[in-house]
């Protein structure tokens, strides 16, 4: 019984949240232009189902493209940075500096370079989401147990051997963990770029709806985004479980 409640809890919470929202809007008679009630938002979903779906799809694929780029480059850069202390030390300040730049500020530059459209969105998603992947992979490599490294090096293992046999498998839980952070950041990047300069995508749809005072449609866009985010997060979490289940199982085992 407890288990059933536990698995139903997230759904109940979401339903409860919408019910509370609806009631609050009706009882306090909040104007739709300030905060539309869920019923109005769902109505907007029905009315604008087509545009929401097509724009959602654009946002989804640009996000996935940016995310794919950041997985590839994040993994490569993470391996390079984690390889040696010297590289780690020389790269790190620049990367932190780069990561501190608000990506909104980069979008106009990307638009200048690539024009309005999907490319700036893809690149913004990439730029905003690759950092956690790099940091996590590098951390996984840099924290190899020194004794284990001694064991292997005493056998004549090269740095490459140590990385292949220990470092890389060891950093995989860090890598897959960072994907969950990266995928949500990638959505942020895409939508920021679409809001500023695009003619497709949920960000563009919301900006348009906002300037037409169609608040229910703006919120419908937000909810569509949230749903996409949750689905992609769940997909990466599932992937993490599949690929590095050992890292979860080893925690809380009786072996001490």
């Amino acid at each position: 019984m407890n288990k059933q409640i536990e698995s139903a809890a997230p759904w109940l919470f979401v339903v409860g949240l919408f019910v509370f929202w609806e009631l609050a809007c009706r009882l306090l008679s909040v104007p739709t232009i300030i905060l539309p009630a869920p019923s109005a938002i769902f109505a907007a979903f029905q009315r604008f189902g087509g545009p929401i779906a097509t724009n959602s799809f654009v946002t989804l694929w640009t996000t996935m493209a940016g995310f794919a780029l950041s997985v590839v480059f994040g993994l490569i850069l993470g391996l390079v940075v984690g390889w040696s202390r010297t590289i780690y030390r020389s790269f790190y300040p620049v990367m932190i500096g780069f990561n501190s730049i608000p990506k909104v500020a980069v979008v106009p530059i990307l638009v200048m370079w690539f024009g309005i459209g999907e490319v700036p969105a893809i690149l913004t998603a990439f730029l905003i989401s690759f950092f956690p992947i790099v940091v996590n992979v590098a951390t996984g490599l840099a924290t190899i147990e020194p004794e284990l490294e001694d064991v292997l090096r005493a056998l004549g293992a090269s740095k490459l051997d140590v990385m292949r046999k220990v470092g890389i498998p060891r950093s995989m839980p860090y890598f897959f963990g960072s994907l969950k952070v990266a995928i949500t950041l990638a959505f942020v990047g895409t939508v920021v770029s679409e809001t500023i300069a695009a003619n497709k995508g949920i960000g563009f749809l919301m900006a348009q709806a906002g300037s037409n005072f169609q608040m229910p449609l703006v919120f419908a866009g937000l909810i569509a985004l949230a749903i996409e985010g949750i689905v992609m997060y769940a997909a990466t979490a599932w992937l993490e479980q599949r690929m590095t289940g050992w890292a979860f199982r080893s925690q809380g085992s009786a072996a001490a």
Partner: peptide, 17 residues
């Protein structure tokens, strides 16, 4: 590295995967 030695430490350091 001498390559003819085996080593073991206080921590077993087995690879969990």
């Amino acid at each position: 590295p001498v390559k003819i030695a085996g080593m073991a430490f206080q921590n077993a350091n087995l690879l969990p995967w």
